[in-house]
Design a protein around this nucleic acid. Structure first.
Length: 265
DNA sequence: CTCAGTGTTCAGTG
DNA sequence: TCACTGAACACTGA
């Protein structure tokens, strides 16, 4: 379930377990869709014997810097994830590549539905999609004035703009719905008619929701019980929030959107 | 058997 | 060029 908070959690996982170590061996499995600008064999060869200097993230994109270029880039798509484990028996299914460090720690990249990419780049930040991202609100939350100016220029539904990676890199479908629910704003409302007060609330909710999700390592069971998150899955017609508010499901901004009409006018 | 889906990108339109 | 919309992508699981 990779949005900003999940990818940041995996970045930390990788940073804690593989940064500063040498890659002793690489397993990579043939996959002409996921290995996008390279092949599994070329990817493995490029990483073997490299030292991992840092694990970095912007939006939903993650990459590593090594002692030598090129650098690996990972995108998780709808169904990708990182896993750390110690031996072959603990390997997840649908594994695409696995880095075995000099101390035996293994970092695996899994992708079930193959929407997601692994690439090699001299500088991942210099090429799309990372080069085209707007600010990542966890790394650098723009000013209230910036939010007002950006949204004032957009006539699309606020839900669609929240998903625009030029606006808030890393915000995905569930974070967008959570922000609008907590801000009490209807997802179909045009961005350019939002009041300054509403925009201010959107900004602070983006910050607080992402911070909380990262603080609990994106573990959904530890998200606050009053979040819409717990009730938004499955498009259940009977779905209600913890307070008993009826939840409506509608396609807005091209995505399934969950909201509470009684609260979000 | 059908369909939705936590993401991105591209074609078509205005 | 840009803003916007809708479809396509791949695959699993409900």
């Amino acid at each position: 379930m990779p949005e900003l908070a999940e990818v940041e959690t995996w970045r930390r996982l990788a940073e804690d377990h593989v940064a500063g170590k040498r890659i002793a061996k690489v397993h990579a499995f043939k996959d002409e869709i996921v290995f996008d600008n390279t092949t599994h064999t070329r990817f493995a060869r490029a990483l073997k014997d490299r030292q991992i200097d840092a694990v970095l993230r912007k939006g939903k994109h993650l990459w590593m810097t090594l002692d030598k270029q090129p650098f690996p880039y990972f995108h998780f798509g709808m169904s990708g994830s990182f896993h750390v484990y110690r031996n072959e028996q603990q390997r997840p299914t649908y594994l695409k590549t696995e880095l075995i460090m000099d101390d035996g720690t293994r970092l695996g990249y899994r992708n079930v539905r193959r929407i997601g990419k692994v690439r090699l780049h001299e500088d991942p930040t210099a090429v799309p999609p990372i080069s085209k991202l707007g600010p990542d609100p966890y790394l650098e939350l723009p000013s209230n004035q910036w939010f007002i100016e950006f949204l004032g220029k957009r006539k699309a539904p606020i839900k669609a703009v929240l998903l625009d990676q030029k606006f808030a890199a890393g915000v995905g479908n569930w974070i967008a719905d959570e922000v609008l629910y907590q801000a009490k704003i209807h997802p179909a409302k045009k961005a350019n008619v939002l009041s300054d007060a509403e925009i201010k609330t959107i900004r602070t909710k983006i910050r607080s929701i992402i911070k909380k999700a990262v603080d609990v390592s994106a573990d959904a069971e530890r998200f606050p019980s009053n979040w819409l998150f717990h009730h938004r899955w499955g498009k259940n017609a009977e779905a209600r929030t913890a307070k008993g508010e009826a939840i409506t499901f509608e396609t807005i901004g091209g995505r399934t959107t969950a909201y509470v009409p009684a609260i979000q006018k």
